[in-house]
Design a protein around this nucleic acid. Structure first.
Length: 799
RNA sequence: GCGAAAGUGGCGGAAUUGGUAUACGCGCUAGACUUAGGAUCUAGUCCCGAGAGAUCGGGUUGGGGGUUCGAGUCCCCCCUUUCGCACCA
């Protein structure tokens, strides 16, 4: 009696053997076409959850498939290991962030090995390793030297009690209090480092060279937020002109007042002495709010009159200047011309405060009225003619504005890559010499909450000589945003221990760009814009080649809990992959994750559903280990087996390429059913049976790599199945000799007739008309038309 | 409010892109086999009606309308759910 399928026995065995044989090592090989399969690296939060499995295991299957298709595939892995959670966990558990992080990495690395992936662990990169962040710092220096990094003041949320900067998630409640001590936060201006992402806006909007989901393209486009319009200058009575951006310059004759953002520098200068008290009383609390709060649409409009007046450069009218929080300093010029007749928000504001509303556009036609010399201009010309008019008079010019702002990379945090800058009283900010990298993050810091950045409080760390003049100077004590680390990890994977640069150019030339990048949609606007920017910036500096880092992107969906709610510890609906692996084995978990839902959609977990996948793999095991029934198969059985086999191969080949994993597994289940049936009809022992067994295992190999290798060995093969070539479809075998011709009368199904595959249209038509099912419904009716769809159906139109 | 995606049996989902709706799996029903298991195997399982029966007829892809010989698929209107964005001038 053969042994039953026992994944707990075979899986560790094969994992060990793969490791010993170096089966998944991938090296540069110019003789073979490469395939760089990349999946987003995890944050070492503690342990791998089912969402990690969902992202990684099907990606691994696809990479394995590509490898069998003849590509030299690299599928690397690493950890995005800097970041705030390590500091929070450290404070909560009184353990050093480094210790916490590396313990988690060890644990998660072990879990990843149990998954049975083809990860080449020699290429592992960990972003908090000095040999990694040395190069993160190096990239910063390149940006600094090439005018892509600069410093400016920017507001942060600040807790005046803890005396520290708070990240967005550390500020809680509508009244915006510090999560630790409950003190209301204030906004504080600090000098911080920015990258010039805005230099690349236009190129970032071009998705032509890459195959990315529409959804991601839309999200990025909206995030970048390109608007065409005009900048127009309004003189003021106080002297300083106000510049505004408008997408509707053609409504300028209807601009009856202006609004400045509360933090606009001109608010103070335009405010008249008698209005000052009221303006101050409005502006100060307004600035404490977040943009999100200020931008809440359902909120009633508020604002105050500054007492100042501007001149509308088109109409020449004297119009009042207000300040209101519905105008944002961060967008456009931080000031607007208000056209209450044609802008909903301005209209609402004007009605509330009794300001003049002057229509200048005919609602139906869009033509301009009451607009001085341009009165009567048709809608199509309104924009261009108004801009030309304003340009002639030096009052404005065409302009494009973007929502996207430069990337703020400074973090007033400990657990991150130190910014490699020295502040010298004589020379200003000076880059650390490349030879002195990495600027090591010291371990001996006071990382408990003291109210200051740990690096600032370190007794000696920040004291250095200026790299330029040699005088006494201080290190920058801010660290870098972790998105900086994750913007280039795909490059470090190529040569994680390379010492002469961030990556080995030979490896780069062979492997880049990434051919398939998989990961969650949640990174659509941050990571995926930053990494594209990073690549383009590096291209212009001369570090990398090509316009885009990742050619094809695909997103997996989210697995919800069994209650259809988002998984969370507090809800108690978290699915633990380790328990599933203990019970069913990694192959079953992998296969079920590929089967239970469309991969790009995700959906609620079903703990009973996995039984079906488990059953299937046990049946597959039986197919290979139980002796076939006696008897001789007839030709029909053999033909049917081969037809199903090659049809399945064709489908699986196409769908693995398209990442349609659920139907791949369904097709393999169907073929297993067909093979069981063929065996009971005596097919075992025929050449077709042997062919079917081998092709079956090769198709199974990417999905369930352990059982496939085990059964491959039991078939008597030397060497791993994962080194085999993907089988070729035998089109002849796959082709059906007969088809089912569907007969419809007036579009309704009336009969099904088996006919030869290449049947002539006339014959199909005749057979359909004569069919029993159709003739029953044709009695007493005249046939008006017969539509023949070759190889499919005949529709008889009668009445 | 704007944008995107989705809505198919009791459930997860399939449908070669305009041509047999409900593949595959879960669950359920009945039976077989038992060394009684979280086992395995066989048959059945969209709804309604007729029939002892193999079958036969009708209906069905959130709702309504349209295009078409033919619509789950295309167009219009509406409803619901999920996810983004949210006063962007």
């Amino acid at each position: 009696m053969e042994k039953a399928y026992d994944p707990s026995e075979i899986e560790p065995k094969w994992q060990q053997r793969w490791e010993e044989e170096g089966l998944y090592r991938s090296d540069v090989d110019p003789a073979r076409p490469k395939h760089y399969a990349l999946t987003m690296l995890p944050y070492p939060s503690g342990e791998l959850h089912i969402g990690h499995w969902y992202a990684i295991a099907p990606s691994d299957a696809q990479a394995r498939f590509m490898r069998m298709r003849g590509r030299n595939v690299v599928f690397p892995m690493g950890f995005d290991s800097f970041g705030l959670p390590a500091e929070n966990a450290a404070i909560k558990r009184n353990i050093h962030p480094k210790e916490w992080t590396y313990a988690n990495i060890d644990r998660m690395r072990g879990q990843l090995r149990r998954m049975g992936t083809m990860i080449d662990w020699r290429r592992e990169a960990v972003s908090s390793d000095p040999e990694y962040y040395r190069w993160t710092q190096w990239f910063f220096l390149q940006f600094f030297l090439n005018d892509l990094a600069y410093r400016k003041k920017a507001a942060v949320d600040w807790c005046p009690s803890c005396n520290t900067t708070l990240a967005r998630e550390q500020v809680i409640g509508d009244d915006r209090r510090c999560e630790r001590c409950g003190t209301p936060v204030i906004r504080k201006e600090l000098s911080q480092w920015f990258f010039r992402t805005t230099r690349y806006v236009e190129e970032l909007l071009d998705f032509g060279p890459i195959d990315w989901p529409e959804r991601v393209q839309t999200l990025q486009s909206r995030w970048i937020g390109r608007s065409e319009g005009a900048n127009v200058v309004f003189p003021t009575e106080a002297g300083d002109p106000i510049e505004v951006f408008t997408t509707r310059p053609d409504t300028i004759w209807g601009a009856t007042f202006m609004v400045l953002a509360p933090d606009h520098p001109l608010v103070e200068r335009l405010t008249t002495p008698e209005r000052k008290a009221e303006v101050d009383a409005y502006v100060v609390p307004a600035l404490r709010q977040t943009d999100v709060q200020r931008e809440a649409t359902d909120k009633e409009k508020t604002g105050v009159f500054t007492g100042g007046y501007a001149i509308n450069p088109a109409s020449g009218e004297r119009i009042p200047v207000w300040t209101a929080d519905y105008v944002l300093m961060g967008y456009g010029t931080g000031a607007i011309m208000a056209v209450p007749a044609h802008d909903e928000r301005d209209g609402e504001f004007a009605r509330k405060f009794g300001l003049e509303i002057k229509p200048v556009i005919v609602p139906e036609s869009g033509a301009m009225i009451d607009s001085g010399p341009l009165t009567g201009t048709r809608a199509e010309e309104a924009f261009d003619r108004t801009v030309a008019y304003l340009e002639e008079r030096g009052a404005g010019k065409k302009a494009i504005t973007y929502r996207l702002r430069d990337w703020l990379i400074s973090r007033q945090r400990y657990w991150g890559a130190p910014i490699p800058i020295v502040h010298c009283p004589q020379c200003g900010p000076v880059g650390v010499s490349e030879d002195d990298l990495p600027v090591l993050l010291p371990d001996d810091v006071e990382w408990r909450p003291t109210g200051e950045s740990p690096l600032k409080l370190h007794p000696t760390w920040k004291n250095v000589e200026c790299p330029s003049c040699g005088g006494p100077a201080e290190r920058e004590t801010d660290t870098m945003d972790t998105f900086m680390c994750s913007s280039w990890y795909h490059l470090r994977y190529l040569s994680p221990r390379y010492d002469d640069g961030p990556f080995d150019p030979a490896e780069y030339r062979y492997w880049m760009p990434v051919d398939l990048y998989t990961g969650g949609i949640e990174h659509a606007t941050m990571h995926l814009i930053y990494t594209r920017f990073f690549h383009k910036a590096c291209r212009d500096i001369g570090i990398v080649q090509g316009d885009e880092p990742m050619i094809r992107l695909r997103n997996q969906g989210i697995i919800l809990g069994e209650d259809s709610e988002k998984m969370s510890k507090s809800r108690g609906n978290v699915v633990a992959p380790d328990e599933l692996v203990d019970r069913y084995g990694a192959d079953t978990v992998r296969a079920y994750l590929m089967f239970f839902a469309r991969w790009d959609m995700g959906g609620p977990w079903n703990s009973r559903g996995i039984e079906g996948t488990s059953r299937w793999l046990r049946r597959v095991w039986g197919l290979f280990t139980e002796p076939g029934e006696g008897g001789q198969a007839n030709q029909e059985t053999v033909d049917r087996l081969r037809r199903k086999l090659h049809q399945t191969l064709k489908q699986v080949t196409r769908e693995m390429g398209e990442l349609q994993f659920n139907t791949v597994v369904a097709a393999l289940m169907e073929l297993q059913n067909e093979m069981s049936q063929a065996r009971s009809q005596g097919a075992a022992g025929t050449p077709a049976w042997t062919e079917a067994l081998e092709i079956y295992l090769k198709m199974l190999a990417p999905v369930a790599p352990h059982i496939a290798d085990e059964l491959w060995e039991r078939l008597g093969h030397e060497g791993s199945i994962h080194l085999q070539d993907w089988p070729e479809v035998d089109e002849k075998a796959a082709a059906a000799e007969e088809i089912t011709l569907v007969v419809q009368v007036n579009g309704k199904l009336r009969d099904r007739i088996t006919v030869p595959v290449g049947i002539a249209d006339d014959d199909a038509r005749r057979i359909a008309l004569e069919s029993e099912g159709a003739s029953r419904f044709l009695e007493g009716k005249a046939v008006r038309q017969v539509i023949v769809v070759p190889g499919r159906l005949v529709n008889i139109v009668a009445g």
